[in-house]
Design a protein around this nucleic acid. Structure first.
Length: 466
DNA sequence: CGGGTTTGACCTGCGC
DNA sequence: GCGCAGGTCAAACCCG
C-alpha cells in the first residue's frame, strides 16, 4: 500500500498534536482512526509503528523507481513525507523522555520539600530546647531590625558625609547587613544549608539572662547641664506622670514616646539634687518606628546599652580583663582620677537594671590621661532602679587600668567639633566600646589615630552586634 | 476642640 | 502581711 495524501495529512496532524500541550487526546484518536482505515493494519500506535510503515513505503518507492522512472514528482512528495515521519518518530521519543524527566523532577522537588521541613523542624526543636518560652523568639525577631538601625545610626555618625547605603561594607558589619537583606528575601527555593548557616549566624540573646522583660529594664542615662526642663533628643514625648523621688527635692517627670502609638520607649527626667543645673535624663526601651535623623543617635545609644549590658558574651569577648560577665555584673565606672566626680562616661549596672550613664556636665577635664577605669563595689547599688544623682558619688577604686589616650582624644575632639548633643553622645558611647576593644593595642605601644579610631569604632560596634 | 500637662489614685515589687 | 517607694493610669485642667 502506498503513502497517500492521507498519510501526509496524518503526519501534519500528529505534528500539531505533539507541538501542542499534548492534552488533546481526541485529535490523537482521530489520527489513529485514519491510519488504521487507510492501511488496514494496527501498526499505528507509536512512532516506531510509523517508522515501520516508513520503511515499507521506502522499499516500495525503490520498486516504483525501477518500474516507473517518470514518477519523480511523486517520489519527491513521498520523500518529504518520510522526513516528516522520521522527525515525528524522533519527536515522540524526545517527548517520552521529557515526560520521564519531568516525573523525576517532581519526585526530587517533593523530597527536597520534605527535607526542608524536616530540617526546619529540627532547628526549631533545638531553639525551643534553649528557650524557656516563646518570648525569646520575639526578641530575636525584633533584634535583627533593631540591630540594623543601630548599625546605620552609628555608621551615620562615624561617616557623616556618606550615604547610608554605602556605609554597610567591610568586616562583620557587612556580613550582618548582608544577612539581614538575605533573610528578608528568603523563599522556598533557597538552599537549605545556606538557610541553616544564616540562621545560626544570628547572634541570639541567651534566654537565661535576657528576656524581653529584662530588656525593658536596660537604661541609658544622660547627665547634661541644661536650664530647660528637657533636652532636645529628636523624639516627641508626652508627659504621663510626675513623682517626688526619695532623697531628691526635685520631682521626677515621666515621659513616653509619642512618635508612634505602640512605641514603648520612656524616659525619666530629674534634676540632680546636688547640682540642680544638671538634668538627668534616663531612657528605657526601644523605638518601634522610624526615627528622624536627630533621634537616631539616641535610639542607637539606648539599643547599644541594652546590647552591651545584656550580652555577657559580647562584653567578655571584647576584653575579659575589663568587663565582668553579666551574670555576676558589677558596676563598672569610668571617671577622672583627679576628681571625685565623674567626667564623661559611667557604665554601671545592677543585675536587674543595667544602666549606662553619659556624663556631659564636665567639659573642663584637662587630659584624657586623667581617666582611669574604676570598678565599683558590687553592693553600691540597690536592686531597684537607682536615681542617677544617688548613683554617682562614692565609687571606690578597685583597679587602675589606663584608658587609652587615643580613644579619649577622639571622643573629646569629636565632642568639641560637633556641639550636637546626639553626636557627642554617640562618640562617647563609641569611646567606651573602643576602649575595651583596643586595650591590647595600647599595651603594645601602637598609636591609633583618630581616623583609625573612628573606623575601628565602626568595626567594634558591629562586633558587639549594635 | 484636640493635644499636652497636672495630680491624686492605683498597681507592683521588694524588704522587713 | 504590711509598708514603702517607684511607676503608671486617668480624669481634670490648661492652652493654643
Amino acid at each position: 500500500m502506498e503513502l497517500t495524501g492521507k498519510d501526509e495529512k496524518r503526519v501534519f496532524k500528529e505534528m500539531d498534536f505533539f507541538s501542542s500541550s499534548g492534552s488533546d487526546d481526541s485529535s490523537r484518536i482521530e489520527v489513529k482512526g485514519e491510519i488504521s482505515e487507510d492501511r488496514q493494519s494496527n501498526e499505528v500506535d507509536t512512532g516506531l509503528n510509523l517508522l515501520t510503515a516508513n520503511t515499507h513505503a521506502s522499499e516500495r518507492y525503490k520498486e516504483d523507481d525501477k518500474d516507473v522512472p517518470t514518477k519523480d514528482l511523486e517520489m519527491d512528495k513521498r520523500s518529504t513525507s518520510n522526513q516528516f515521519i522520521a522527525l515525528k518518530v524522533e519527536l515522540a521519543l524526545v517527548n517520552s523522555e521529557n515526560n520521564r524527566l519531568r516525573s523525576m523532577l517532581e519526585q526530587v522537588k517533593h523530597k527536597l520539600y520534605e527535607v526542608q521541613h524536616h530540617i526546619m523542624a529540627v532547628v526549631q526543636h533545638q531553639q525551643n530546647s534553649k528557650a524557656t518560652n516563646q518570648q525569646v523568639h520575639k526578641v530575636v525577631e525584633t533584634e535583627s531590625e533593631e540591630r540594623k538601625q543601630q548599625i546605620l545610626g552609628i555608621k551615620q555618625l562615624m561617616n557623616p558625609g556618606r550615604p547610608v547605603d554605602q556605609m554597610v561594607s567591610g568586616s562583620s558589619l557587612e556580613q550582618n547587613g548582608r544577612f539581614l537583606k538575605e533573610n528578608n528575601q528568603q523563599d522556598e527555593d533557597d538552599n537549605v544549608q545556606h538557610w541553616i548557616a544564616n540562621y545560626n549566624k544570628v547572634p541570639r540573646l541567651d534566654s537565661s539572662s535576657a528576656t524581653e522583660a529584662t530588656m525593658k529594664k536596660v537604661r541609658v542615662s544622660v547627665r547634661a547641664r541644661s536650664e530647660t526642663p528637657l533636652i532636645s533628643d529628636g523624639c516627641q514625648w508626652r508627659k504621663y506622670g510626675q513623682k517626688m523621688a526619695k532623697g531628691n527635692p526635685c520631682p521626677r517627670a515621666y515621659y513616653r514616646c509619642t512618635m508612634d502609638v505602640g512605641c514603648l520607649v520612656r524616659k525619666q527626667v530629674q534634676r540632680c539634687a546636688e547640682d540642680r543645673s544638671i538634668l538627668v535624663t534616663t531612657y528605657e526601651g526601644k523605638h518601634n518606628h522610624p526615627l528622624p535623623p536627630a533621634a537616631i543617635a539616641m535610639a542607637s545609644t539606648t539599643s547599644a546599652a541594652a546590647t552591651m549590658s545584656l550580652s555577657g558574651s559580647s562584653m567578655s569577648s571584647l576584653n575579659d580583663n575589663l568587663m565582668t560577665p553579666l551574670d555576676t555584673f558589677a558596676p563598672t565606672i569610668f571617671h577622672s582620677s583627679s576628681s571625685s566626680s565623674p567626667n564623661v562616661v559611667t557604665l554601671s549596672a545592677s543585675v536587674l537594671f543595667p544602666t549606662i550613664t553619659l556624663d556631659l556636665t564636665n567639659p573642663s577635664f584637662k587630659s584624657p590621661q586623667d581617666f582611669q577605669l574604676l570598678q565599683n563595689q558590687p553592693h553600691s547599688f540597690s536592686s531597684r532602679a537607682q536615681p542617677i544623682n544617688q548613683m554617682l558619688p562614692s565609687q571606690s577604686k578597685v583597679s587602675n587600668m589606663q584608658i587609652p589616650k587615643e580613644f579619649m582624644d577622639a571622643a573629646v575632639t569629636a565632642i568639641t567639633k560637633d556641639p550636637s548633643f546626639s553626636s557627642a553622645l554617640m562618640v562617647a558611647i563609641a569611646s567606651i566600646v573602643g576602649n575595651n576593644a583596643h586595650t591590647s593595642n595600647v599595651n603594645n605601644n601602637n598609636n591609633v589615630s583618630s581616623d583609625e579610631f573612628a573606623r575601628n569604632m565602626s568595626e567594634r560596634s558591629s562586633m558587639m552586634n549594635i
